[in-house]
Amino acid sequence: MSNNIKIPLSSLPIGRHGKVMTITSEGPTRRRMLDLGFVRGTDVLALRKSPLGDPTAYKIRGAVIALRQEEASYIYISELI
């Protein structure tokens, strides 16, 4: 079940799932995120933070991808409860 409130991926708590809603970055960064599989409706799991709190590793489409806080803040998701 999703609560339909848009939050940036960067504020998804560790261990929680979300569904991708929109990406607000532009240009090559946006393209890269789409290529990595961050398209609407995709399930993302926040796996773990690095020892210093940033970047965070996310599980997406079977792969583990680390994103810095900036990149993750341009991806909006709805948290799954």
């Binding site: 990595l36 970047p55 590793a57 991808i65 990149e71």
Partner: peptide, 8 residues
């Protein structure tokens, strides 16, 4: 810093 993504 430019955009950064890293696969583990």
């Amino acid at each position: 810093p430019s955009s950064f993504s890293l696969e583990l």
